[in-house]
Write a protein that binds this DNA or RNA. Structure first.
Lengths: 196, 196
DNA sequence: GTCTATACACGGATAGAC
DNA sequence: GTCTATCCGTGTATAGAC
């Protein structure tokens, strides 16, 4: 339950972000949001039109944040391979899953053009960014010329998103790490004097 | 709404399977199940202890079915690479997602040892099966000896599970196919006289 | 076995006082 | 802006008739 210097509407948005991450859209009730935010019914319906409106604000913020986090790593220093490696290995709360990706399993989110848009845009943006990096790696001779940037980018993102699924199924982050290492071993440029 | 020769309890299970796939556990109500099955409240509570009990029966059956479907492809003819390729390319209702994998995003399923078990076991079994195939491929010289079977298997499964996420985010199966092609291009044994 | 009736808490939203 | 009161439908379950 929030209290710090946040305004009521801020607390509502932050509470909603947490609950969407933990329980998804269908699993998140206004009541639960209000309890966590320490606010009454009136406040919520004063600042937002209703649950979908509040969820939209929460999803937009989460999507924006994820994009920034990804860009911080993908736009960092290093060779193309190293930047993709850094993206895959970046610290994650694996068992919580992806706060954006998990929304795609929510029927009400997918059914709403508005709610799905930020999810779609964020994933597309990160994918495009990775695709560019792969193309750069091809030009530099670090990746095989036969590879397709968009396809590799999709495989990278899918490995992350699917890694969360494997991890949550088994109750341990190990499967996520295994998938990432597997993909990296396939992607790795041959080191001098080393067998793959 | 079912009616064919199925018994009431069969219709309840089948309806639950569909709804779990479409809307997940939290998003599925007994009422919706009963409507789809064309049964009354009493029937459900006669055959099952309640929603979790019915869901368990449904999940077990779906898990079993998925395992059989995977085995049909993975145990088919062809080289190790070809069998993994067949698994990745097998026909799928991509936008509906994986009926088993989607359950991992359901907080109530993950919170229940009983409901999570069939999900975990199914994914672990398929992963183990793929790992064995990769090891066989290494022995045959089709895959690089530096690869780890369990890791590659995790990457393969993650690409599929994550592919569903990308596809649903964008509203099109294209991203799923791209991820699969990307992974296959990384996994492909060098064809004679071809540049990867 | 299956149905209807009933129960009661929760989901989502509105009204109006302060 | 925020609160409480109120509303009506739904979610989940039980009781008891047929």
């Amino acid at each position: 339950m929030y209290s710090k210097g946040m305004s009521t509407s801020e607390r509502l948005i932050e509470s909603t972000r947490e609950l969407l991450w933990e329980r998804g859209y269908v699993g998140t009730s206004p009541k639960a949001i209000l309890e966590r935010a320490g606010a009454g019914q009136g406040s919520m319906y004063h600042h937002f039109k209703g649950k979908p409106d509040l969820a939209l604000a929460a999803i937009r913020r989460t999507a924006e944040e994820l994009r920034a986090t990804a860009e911080a790593v993908l736009g960092g220093p290093g060779t193309p391979y190293e930047r993709i490696e850094a993206y895959l290995l970046r610290e994650r709360d694996v068992l919580r899953g992806c706060p954006v990706g998990r929304l795609t399993m929510d029927p009400d989110v997918i059914a709403s053009e508005e709610l799905r848009a930020p999810v779609d845009e964020t994933i597309a943006a990160i994918r495009g960014r990775i695709a560019d990096i792969v193309e750069e790696g091809k030009r530099r001779g670090q990746f095989a010329p036969g590879l397709d940037g968009e396809e590799i980018a999709a495989a990278v993102l899918a490995t992350v998103q699917g890694g969360y699924v494997l991890a949550r199924a088994s109750g341990s982050p190990a499967a996520f790490d295994a998938g990432v290492r597997g993909l990296l071993s396939l992607l790795a440029p041959p080191a001098p004097g080393q067998e793959n």
